[in-house]
Design a protein around this nucleic acid. Structure first.
Lengths: 190, 190, 190, 190
DNA sequence: TATGAATGAGCGTTCATTCAT
DNA sequence: TATGAATGAACGCTCATTCAT
């Protein structure tokens, strides 16, 4: 439950810098970017990267976990909005927009949806729970079809994030696409 | 526009074998698979692969072009079905299901949607045209919202293919997800 | 039985050069020397080394196998000498002397004695058989104790080679040591 | 000659723990084991290891020195046995057996025999002296050939230890090998 | 003095690409 | 034209050593 090792202050700072750098580099060039490049972006030696993340795969996963943490936090932030229906759709929009900027969001969410073991029961559960709350209230308010459940909602979100990734230049088209993908969630559809 | 050189029969045959092998290998292991492996699968030397596709990237693109050709053909095949509405949705479903099996379909379509230059005006246009025909007839039949246009349709398709890629184990969930994503295309009965 | 792949002439030549270079480099600096260095010594790119020996360990083993092949050949060469007793001891001496120059001889023989699986049934058997022949004739001639068998003979040889490795500067001492180690093989005249 | 600085009690204790740990780790995994691992086994930080042994090589040598000290002590312990002949051979046997368990004994002794400079005049001399005493008394008692001297005795011991290292599974073979290697020391051999 | 985080050279290995056969 | 051996840059990762805490 508590952090395993209470790292020294400077070590924790470096860990964070590496994580941030990895997030940025992976976002810009994909996971294929070299670990060396991440190290350079973080301003540390390559040994430091591997001290904190024993494997490149471990680093990739840490980035994804971080993103899911942000996702859950963000979702929680919208949880007690006055109008649950608007809040729900606003959150979806917000999230998809972020995915345009930060490359691996859809990937992260996909793996969270799939309940990948390494994500850690904790974060995965937080994600599903926070999203479930938002969804439930929107359904109670009659803004979302009652038969929608969290797993397919996640999948739709994943798809939307991915679809939009290639559309960052054309704002209008992106708008139309996102609207179309989320329209099916609304009850008015037969 | 036309093929640069009229290849000798055996050369053309080899080119085709390599392309097929690449499709299979990339589908199974992703684009990261080595060119050597593709050569082996095709039963040719690695030199032959590079004779036909001067670069690995060129090979990857050729695979995508091939897929788009199939996409356009398939779409054309549904073009004169009796019930345009059913045909339209049946085609979408069919396509998404194929994407589950053949890895990079969504990727290919995404790049086709983006009108990437290398796709070649020809294939890109064929795709958009065939899909446009299907869409137009479905709209005329009142089965699809009238304000939907080809670009966002492609984007939705891309998103659906991607979303579903991680769901190949759970058929029911896949079904619900796809339905949800395409539901927005239908005219609201509000 | 026959060579698995009939390599092209140039490829076979390169394989041999790499093997030779590895023998020399490992002899001079131990197995810890870098593969890069072996490549340089062979005058080939590093990729070539790994094409022929897929692993550094594989290269090391190939060197040992090569040495055992030489050992067996050499032993066979002494097999039909006129005086079996002299031939036997002369061979032992000869071998130990070579071990002084070529670093990993004792290591190779030790693993042959241990019947390490990768040595290949073939070479290991050749070694034991050739040595057994020499030993048998020497025993028949009364020059070696009758109760000595091949396994312990190999062990003694291994020990002698190793002992002598550190004595290459002092010929006289080396002489006395080797004599002492092999003296026990002679029938006691008690 | 004497210890450079009279270390504080806890520092001396740490030095000893590191040395012991290194002995165990090197024995189990060879000198290739990482210094980090030694530190962990000793229960100290890696910085502490390097404070006491400025270099990994220095640590390795310290281990060897320690072993030679034990060798000399052990030899001295047998020095005034009643039957010098039995004592001599019993000591050799004992030592070789230990070498089976503790990996680098033969290596250590080899370097002692070679009078490597770093071993320190002191320990090297102790070793040669203690062994010389044992040998001398055995020769006086007629149990060992009179022309044998310490240097070749050390070499034989080194060879025997090494030979036996690969034979730890087969006790009977080990027995026969050792007997064979030491048999040459006895006077009955022509 | 002890700690362990940081460093970066170096290693084994892979793979796209070239070129002699 | 087809082959596959050769090449070497680049990668992930390890580890002896240094140094701030």
């Amino acid at each position: 439950m508590a952090e395993a090792k209470p790292l020294r202050a400077d070590a924790r700072r470096n860990r964070a810098r590496v994580l941030e750098a990895a997030e940025a580099v992976f976002a810009a060039k994909g996971t294929g970017a070299s670990t060396e490049e991440v190290a350079k972006a973080a301003g540390v030696g390559i040994g430091t990267v591997f001290r904190h993340f024993s494997t490149k795969e471990a680093l990739r996963q840490a980035v994804l976990v971080e993103r899911m943490r942000e996702f859950a936090e963000e979702a929680a932030r919208w949880a007690d909005a006055e109008d649950p229906g608007s809040a729900f759709f606003a959150f979806l929009d917000h999230w998809v927009e972020m995915g345009t900027a930060k490359y691996a969001y859809s990937e992260a969410l996909a793996e969270a949806g799939a309940e990948v073991s390494w994500l850690g029961a904790e974060v995965g559960a937080q994600v599903r729970q926070a999203l479930g709350a938002l969804l439930g209230r929107a359904q109670d308010a009659g803004a979302v079809r009652g038969d929608v459940e969290v797993p397919e909602l996640i999948a739709v979100l994943v798809g939307a994030s991915y679809a939009v990734k290639h559309l960052d230049a054309d704002t209008a088209l992106r708008r139309r696409t996102v609207d179309l993908m989320f329209a099916g969630l609304r009850p008015s559809h037969g």
